[in-house]
């Protein structure tokens, strides 16, 4: 039991370090749009997801509706359902319903990737180890970023507004460069988003992201349906 927990923790260290930096960017962004350090940290502790949180903060900033918030979170985070589904099929017998209810909190892209790569069945202790250290990195980074945004001079903090977007680019550009199908999806989504920003301005920013992403993903799925091998490389 204990050794599984520590094995999970050790597998979570690189994730935690990555999260520390990404969530630092989120903390800065959240405070920039008017949230408190406490709210920013609370969002990270309860959500544990990057893009969903960033979009959620945008909706809070403009006073969007709760329906919009629900639809945005559904669209951005629906991929976790597939990951959860996939992980549910390699769970150890020790994974009773209460354990499943707790561990599902921590299904993120990175934790999913590490868990799926495990040869043996997943135990609750292992997943708790990896989730705990990753979540600590995520929440700590957010608090530090949010606090830094409040303390730093205006010239530095305004430049830091770009940090989260820089990370998003670093996530999408390398696969878009390698795979034409991903490039197509990225370009279609960006073009649709530009149209909403400058032409169909009546559509709120949250819905603009949803509609652009759905149009682009449907286009990609119709023109280039992925095979099982591509999917597992994700």
């Amino acid at each position: 039991m204990k050794s599984n927990f520590f094995r999970g923790m050790s597998h979570g260290i690189p994730i935690a370090l990555g999260y520390l930096s990404v969530s630092f960017g989120f903390g800065i962004k959240a405070v920039s749009v008017g949230l408190s350090v406490f709210s920013a940290t609370a969002i990270s502790a309860t959500n544990l997801t990057s893009a969903g949180q960033a979009a959620g903060v945008d909706i809070i900033a403009v006073g969007g509706t709760l329906i919009e918030m629900i639809l945005v979170q559904l669209t951005i985070n629906i991929r976790y359902s597939l990951m959860a589904l996939s992980l549910s099929q390699k769970l150890d017998g020790k994974f009773s319903l209460p354990h499943r209810l707790i561990a599902s909190y921590g299904i993120t892209d990175e934790i999913f990737a590490v868990c799926s790569a495990q040869k043996q069945k997943l135990t609750p202790a292992y997943m708790y180890g990896i989730i705990l250290i990753s979540a600590v990195g995520w929440v700590t980074g957010t608090a530090l970023g949010a606090a830094a945004r409040q303390l730093l001079p205006e010239s530095v903090s305004s430049a830091l507004g770009i940090v989260l977007y820089g990370m998003f680019m670093a996530i999408i550009i390398p696969p878009a460069r390698k795979q034409r199908n991903v490039l197509l999806v990225v370009v279609v989504s960006a073009l649709a988003s530009i149209l909403f920003r400058y032409v169909f301005t009546a559509v709120s920013s949250g819905f603009a992201v949803i509609i652009s992403a759905v149009i682009a993903s449907v286009t990609g799925s119709l023109l280039f349906p992925v095979s099982d091998t591509e999917e597992s490389e994700q």
């Binding site: 991929r79 799925s221 999917e231």
Partner: peptide, 28 residues
């Protein structure tokens, strides 16, 4: 296969729509 493809593409699409054109307004 369509739904699995859709789920595969959606993270890239979401990040792209969130970044462009918002990144150009991110520093004031």
């Amino acid at each position: 296969r369509f739904f699995r493809s859709f789920l595969y593409y959606i993270p890239y699409a979401v990040l792209s729509a969130m970044t462009i054109p918002a990144i150009f307004y991110s520093t004031g």
